[in-house]
């Protein structure tokens, strides 16, 4: 039983690290602020959840703390990406792509290069 748990925790650690790395790759490859937020705000958070689950299994004291932290991370991360993207739009950072339903509906600074 102990060994199985250790193996699961190991697997979660590897998965979490991989997803965090993919998040960073996405941050480098994607073209603008808004698409980059998709990579950091989703893939990296997902990786963080796996790492916390692994910590939950490996350290006996952290059961409730890790689960609570997962809840808080999942509650906070969309709010953070929303705040950053909203601020970026308001400041006038241009977005890649043709369709923009929000155009003209929100006060916006001068478009920057």
């Amino acid at each position: 039983m102990e060994i199985i748990l250790q193996l699961v925790a190991f697997l979660l650690l590897v998965l979490g690290t991989l997803l965090s790395i993919i998040g960073v790759i996405g941050f480098i490859r994607l073209p603008d602020v808004y698409t980059r937020l998709h990579a950091t705000g989703k893939v990296s958070v997902f990786g963080l959840v796996f790492l916390l689950l692994a910590a939950d299994i490996l350290t006996p004291l952290a059961t409730w703390k890790a689960l609570l932290l997962i809840f808080f991370v999942l509650a906070a991360s969309p709010a953070v990406s929303h705040a950053i993207s909203s601020a970026a739009y308001r400041v006038g950072i241009p977005l890649v792509g043709k369709r923009d339903d929000l155009k003209g509906k929100m006060e916006r600074g001068k478009e920057k290069e």
């Binding site: 993919i22 977005l95 890649v96």
Partner: peptide, 16 residues
């Protein structure tokens, strides 16, 4: 999202 990021062609069509 991870699959999109790792795809060599980067198949995105962003917009609001």
């Amino acid at each position: 999202t991870a699959r999109i990021v790792l795809d060599p062609k980067l198949p995105i069509n962003p917009g609001i």
